[in-house]
């Protein structure tokens, strides 16, 4: 298998960064009290994955990783559109974007 010139340590550092992004995204999603910020956190997670793809693609000298990133960005954009529409809906409903305000469906 063909491997890139930069060493494994470097790949690991990219992965660490991507992992950190993921974790930040998760934590942000869990603790922030605003729907928009929460959505942005998921975007952050997506980007964490994207970094991993790019780094690994470079590592393996395989372009498919970068292709993947393009698609990730596209999908993220689509999701963003959807998210904003929903957020508008929600805001119209309760005048707030605090996710805890929307607990009508529960046990």
């Amino acid at each position: 298998m063909m491997l890139a010139s930069f060493g494994a340590a470097t790949l690991a550092s990219y992965l660490v960064v991507s992992g950190i992004l993921l974790v930040i995204g998760v934590v942000g999603f869990l603790v922030r009290r605003n729907l928009i910020v929460m959505f942005l956190c998921t975007e952050l997670m997506f980007q964490g994955a994207a970094i991993a793809f790019v780094a690994a693609g470079r590592y393996y000298l395989d372009y498919s990783g970068q292709v993947m990133v393009i698609f990730i960005l596209t999908v993220a954009a689509a999701e963003a559109a959807l998210a904003l529409a929903l957020v508008v809906f929600m805001h119209r409903q309760r005048d707030t974007l605090d996710p805890d305000a929307y607990g009508e469906l529960a046990e």
Binding site: F29, P99, Y102, L105, E107
Partner: peptide
């Protein structure tokens, strides 16, 4: 039952 409290973030 309390797990299903309806809050997005607690689900998350």
């Amino acid at each position: 039952s309390p797990l299903h409290n309806g809050a997005v973030q607690s689900y998350a």
